[in-house]
Design a binder for these strands. Structure first.
Length: 278
DNA sequence: AAAGACACCTGTCCGC
DNA sequence: TGCGGACAGGTGTCTT
C-alpha cells in the first residue's frame, strides 16, 4: 500500500487533525511490529505535536515535551511497511483486527495505525530524527533539487546491479518503490535489466525526469482522495488507471500492444514492455 | 563499499 | 469447500 505518494497523502491527511494538539494517550495493543514499540513512546502523552513531517517513507511526529524548565522535543518515527495505514478516527470507535496503535489527541480524535503484516514501525527518539540510524544514510528526496542529474549519474558509475534495483536503493534515492520503479522505467523507455553503471547520462536524464513526474503526479492524485481520507476504507484506487506496466503481466502494452513481461529482480517482480523499453 | 539472500507477518488468490 | 503454495506496495541485517 504505501509508496511515497501514499505516505505523503497520509501525512497531509493527518496533519490538520494533530498538529498543534496535545496527545492524551498512546494505546499500544500490539507492540510487536517490525521492532518492538518502545515503552518510551508514552513520553508523547501530555506533549503537543508541533509538526508532521516526512523523510522518505518515514513519518515524523515532532513533539514538544512538557519539562519543567527547558524546552525538550521528542519525535515519533512511523513507517508503514508493506501493509500499514494511518487513519483519523474517533477515539471511541472500537478497534478492528490489526488496529495495533492509537495516538489519542485532545479533540477526541485518534491516529489509528493498522498493519496486518506488521512490517511497519513506531519508534521514539529525543535526538534529531534525521540523525537516527534508520534515517541518516538515506539518499535525497526524489522531488528535491538534491536529486539531480549530476548526482544520479555519478552514483550509478561502477554499479553492476540492474538499473531497476539501483533506483529502488534507498541510499541512492528514497521513495521509489516497486510500482514507481517499473512505471518510471517504462515512461523513460529503459529496460529494467540494463546495468546501472553502463547506462548513458542521456538515459539517466530521462529517467530522472520520469521519476519526478510519476511521483508528483501520484501525489496529486493522492490529494484528490484527501477529502474522504477520514472515512475512506482500503485503497483509494486513484492511480491504478495510470499504471502502464505494473501488475499487467501478459496483457497488451497500452502503447504498442505487445505482451507485458514479468521477471524477478532482487526477489521483486518487475513488469516491462520489451518493445517499448531498451 | 557493493551485492545477494533472507528475514519479518498476514491476507489473498489460484490450482487441485 | 478445503488445502498447499505462491505472491504482495518495504527495507534492515547478515554474509560473501
Amino acid at each position: 500500500m504505501p509508496e511515497l505518494p501514499e505516505v505523503e497523502t497520509t501525512r497531509r491527511g493527518i496533519q490538520p487533525y494533530v498538529e498543534g494538539h496535545t496527545v492524551i494517550k498512546v494505546i499500544v495493543r500490539q507492540p510487536n511490529l517490525r521492532w518492538k514499540v518502545p515503552d518510551e513512546i508514552h513520553a508523547m502523552e501530555g506533549a503537543s505535536i508541533v509538526s508532521v513531517r516526512r523523510r522518505g517513507k518515514y513519518l515524523l511526529l515532532e513533539c514538544a515535551l512538557n519539562s519543567k524548565q527547558q524546552q525538550r522535543t521528542g519525535t515519533a518515527i512511523i513507517h508503514l511497511g508493506m501493509s500499514g495505514s494511518l487513519r483519523i478516527v474517533d477515539a471511541s470507535q472500537p478497534p478492528e483486527k490489526h488496529d495495533h496503535i492509537d495516538i489519542v489527541v485532545d479533540t477526541g480524535k485518534a491516529i489509528r495505525l493498522r498493519d496486518p503484516r506488521r512490517f511497519g514501525a513506531l519508534l521514539w527518539t529525543t535526538d534529531d530524527p534525521l540523525k537516527h540510524k534508520l534515517l541518516r544514510s538515506l539518499g535525497p528526496e526524489p522531488l528535491s533539487a538534491d536529486f539531480n542529474l549530476e548526482y544520479f549519474y555519478q552514483q550509478s558509475r561502477g554499479r553492476s546491479v540492474s538499473i531497476k534495483q539501483f533506483i529502488m536503493n534507498t541510499h541512492v534515492v528514497v521513495g521509489v518503490g516497486n510500482i514507481y520503479a517499473c512505471e518510471s522505467l517504462f515512461r523513460a523507455g529503459i529496460s529494467p535489466k540494463r546495468v546501472a553503471g553502463k547506462t548513458s547520462k542521456k538515459r539517466y536524464q530521462k529517467l530522472l525526469q520520469m521519476i519526478k513526474a510519476v511521483l508528483s503526479e501520484a501525489i496529486e492524485q493522492g490529494g484528490t482522495t484527501l477529502r474522504d481520507f477520514v472515512q475512506a476504507e482500503g485503497n483509494p484506487g486513484y492511480f491504478q488507471q495510470k499504471l502502464f506496466v505494473y501488475g499487467r503481466a501478459n496483457l497488451p502494452c497500452l502503447v504498442c500492444g505487445s505482451k507485458i513481461k514479468q521477471i524477478t529482480q532482487g526477489q521483486r517482480s518487475t513488469f516491462y514492455c520489451s518493445h517499448c523499453q531498451h
